[in-house]
Simulated assay, not measured.
Amino acid sequence: MLETRRSELQKAEAKVVILGDKVNTHVSLLEKIYVTLDHYSPTLQKYTGLLDAFLKTCKLVAGLRSRHDEDEIA
């Protein structure tokens, strides 16, 4: 019983490490997006269609990443 509990805790710890890595990756991506938006702010304000396209691209990339991550976990 003790060995089973230990094994379960090790599996949970591994999952926490994986999730922590994913959070760090997403934070890094958000930082890059923020820098990009800040840098191109005047252009994006002038051409609002660019911002829409950029945001749609970000959503698409996030969706693809989450599906890829789910496939890796399964």
Rank of each mutant, 00 (worst) to 15 (best):
L30R: 03
L64K: 09
E13H: 06
L51A: 14
S41F: 13
P42F: 00
L19A: 12
L60M: 06
E8K: 15
R6V: 15
F54Y: 06
A12C: 03
V16S: 05
L30G: 05
K46T: 15
F54H: 01
K22P: 06
Q10D: 13
L60N: 08
L29C: 05
M1H: 06
C58L: 13
K11P: 01
K15D: 10
R6Y: 04
D38A: 12
G63L: 07
Q10R: 08
D21I: 09
T43V: 15
P42I: 04
P42N: 01
L44W: 01
R5L: 15
G20D: 06
H26M: 09
L19T: 07
M1D: 06
K32I: 04
R67S: 15
K15P: 10
V27P: 03
E13G: 12
Q10L: 14
Y40H: 09
F54K: 00
V61E: 07
D69G: 00
L44I: 15
I73L: 13
S66T: 15
L60G: 05
K32N: 13
G49V: 00
R67N: 10
I33M: 04
T48Y: 03
D69I: 03
Y40I: 02
Y40S: 04
L44A: 13
I73C: 04
T43P: 00
D71S: 09
G63R: 10
L60W: 03
K22H: 06
G20T: 11
K32W: 01
F54C: 06
G63P: 06
F54W: 02
R6D: 12
T43W: 03
L44H: 01
I73P: 02
I73G: 02
C58Q: 09
H26S: 12
V23G: 00
V16K: 09
K11I: 13
R6G: 04
E3Q: 12
K22C: 12
L55K: 08
L50A: 04
G49E: 02
E8P: 12
V35C: 06
L55V: 15
N24G: 08
K11C: 10
D69K: 00
A12W: 01
L30S: 05
M1I: 13
